[in-house]
Design a protein around this nucleic acid. Structure first.
Lengths: 352, 352
DNA sequence: AGTATTCATGTAAACGCTTCCAAAAATTTG
DNA sequence: CAAATTTTTGGAAGCGTTTACATGAATACT
């Protein structure tokens, strides 16, 4: 093993610098009790010998790994990509490494990974879009293992989490559609087991209420955030006697699929029907017409998740709760003032 | 440190199972020299005690980390996401963990990461779209450090790499456009420092030659794979006296931007102008019109990269060269037979 | 049955570092 | 200037494994 032989250790550095390996270790760890002059000599030697501390050994001896684990469902949409960018930035600055685990939607893998990771492979865990966190939040909390949830508000658990103002975002977006003149708005929900999905639905309902628009059960299609739901839901709406003039999907992926359905029916966006999404994933701005949507600050959510995790690492007993970041409506081409249908308005009103 | 105290080690397992810790280690490592009955007893004990082997210790003692490093430029487009999916699948099956490093286009970070990682943090390295690999391929080769390059053909280096048949893909795609009747085809190149970009350009040129179509320098716009190039390049083409009837961009991102430019000029896709991309990133099928493109088997490239790396790990002296995976044309909506312009054909011919 | 071979198991010595404690050197104090 | 105090340094004892090597048990062979 060449790799083995020519590796330079703190002992080599110590010998070369004429100090004990203990001192070298102190230098590595920025211990104050080293004479500046000695420190400089050691540092110089390390540089000259091209020394890199062995992470495994440090972890083993020190009990820290300087690595955090990231559990994500997938990397397909760019949605996660944005979040990772944020996490990665913070981690890099803090000198942590990132261990990536993809569950590929297999919820069962989650718990398995978690129980392994918690066993000391990483110092902390960031879980993005956890599927059924209740399975393991218990053991993590009990073991006081540092973790943060991203984009999930629990079904009751009270733990560190980063999310965004889903309710407010949906409320504002709906309000905006109403301002454009839309009174019949079809809403496609997300997976209602997730708090985020429920909040978006509630925001939608509240906005209708505020605007004194009756809530028609037929105009709510229950989806799961999956592409197909957007398509199916939109078709359901379009086949109604009086189809909605706008469709608000609980995420961009479903909104994009809804656009397909609308086009297949020979309708134009936004002239005939407006489409609103949620998330603002990168491709939302790339499609034509580009998608008006509610922006979640994904990258920032990632950054803050990392920061919160660091804080937990430092102050394990500090109480950390859910943090909500503001959402924002991004106006693009897929929504427009209700025009063509205005003559039909009386009709619509009669209907209600 | 609670974390510390309640950790169960092989010694605990050994005591509980009534064997020496050496035997437990053998069981963990699937050593043949363990009586089946003993093995079962140890396994049972491990299960009961919820034992998880400490990775740091294993690495330190064994000299292997069971972790591979992945260096990627970014996670934005889904392009990398696909590749990672492939890598991740293989890694998971083989029991390796994934350490992710993002360079965010900062080429300087690459070399830094590499020199650290090579120092024993990971057993091998997969570099996706390396920016300037010559900086560190040298040291890796010299140290015999296992690595694989993905989607990059060197500017001379002879090392393990996974790519696709860029030349053939571009050749076939161009041929296809010609079959549709297009004779004036605008080509937007990638970053010509990358072999892949050069190959695509050469494939394009060769197809023109085969079809006896003159190669007009004005119909080649030199880009860098970046979005803006697609836009600018397309505008350049469209402002010509005799604009091309088809545009072939060296990647999907530029093709998508070219579509924007075409639309801004009030032209329709594909009726007025056909657009062809390269890569087949996930969003290519999601845009409207959907993008006809040359598919690189990204996920498969990831898988094979991992497999090759495993092979290098097993047979360090085995010679590993570049592997090329076949590309494939994906027909979608952005290309069509040359129709409307057919009456102008004589004109075009006169021009050449 | 007695010896030669396997096979199964136990044990000590790393692996490269952190951390604690004690010793040595430098500094302050009376 | 010696004693007390503080700062700096050295070295031992782990951290939880793997991996030789040694030993003991079981099996095969003559």
């Amino acid at each position: 093993m060449n790799k083995r032989r020519d590796r330079v250790t703190i002992v080599d550095v110590a010998a070369e610098a004429g100090v004990s390996f203990g001192t070298v270790s102190r230098v590595i760890n920025n211990d104050v009790h080293v004479k500046p002059q000695t420190r400089e000599r050691v540092l110089e030697t390390m540089r000259r010998l091209n020394f890199v501390a062995n992470r495994q050994a440090r972890s083993l001896a020190g009990g820290r790994t300087n690595t955090i684990g990231l559990l994500v469902p997938d990397l397909g949409t760019g949605y996660i990509g944005e979040i990772i960018r944020g996490i990665d930035t913070e981690l890099g600055d803090a000198g942590y490494d990132l261990m990536l685990y993809t569950t590929h939607r297999a919820a069962t893998k989650e718990a398995g990974y978690v129980s392994n990771l918690v066993q000391g492979m990483v110092d902390g865990l960031i879980l993005v879009l956890p599927r059924n966190p209740s399975d393991y939040i218990g053991i993590m909390t009990q073991r006081k293992f540092p973790f943060v949830l991203v984009d999930h508000q629990g079904t009751g658990e009270d733990c560190p989490a980063i999310g965004s103002t889903n309710w407010q975002g949906a409320f504002n977006a709906t309000n905006y559609l109403v301002k454009l003149g839309h009174k019949r708005i079809g809403f496609i929900t997300g997976w209602l087991d997730l708090g985020a999905a429920v909040d978006r639905l509630e925001g939608f309902k509240a906005a209708l209420r505020t605007n004194k628009i009756p809530l028609l059960p037929d105009l709510i299609y229950e989806g799961t955030f999956a592409q197909l739901d957007g398509y199916t839901g939109a078709l359901r709406f379009l086949d109604m006697k009086k189809p909605p003039t706008a469709i608000f999907a609980s995420n961009d992926v479903m909104a994009m699929a809804a656009m397909d359905a609308v086009r297949e029916k020979g309708l134009r966006i936004p002239e005939d029907i407006s489409i609103m999404g949620f998330d603002d994933i990168p491709q939302a701005s790339l499609m034509r017409p580009s998608l008006t949507t509610v922006r979640q600050p994904l990258e920032q959510m990632g950054r803050i998740a990392a920061q919160v995790l660091f804080d937990i690492l430092k102050n394990p007993d500090h109480k950390h709760n859910r943090i909500e970041l503001p959402t924002e409506i991004i106006l693009r081409e897929s929504t427009a003032t209700l025009r063509k249908l205005q003559e039909e308005e009386p009709d619509l009103i009669r209907f209600h």
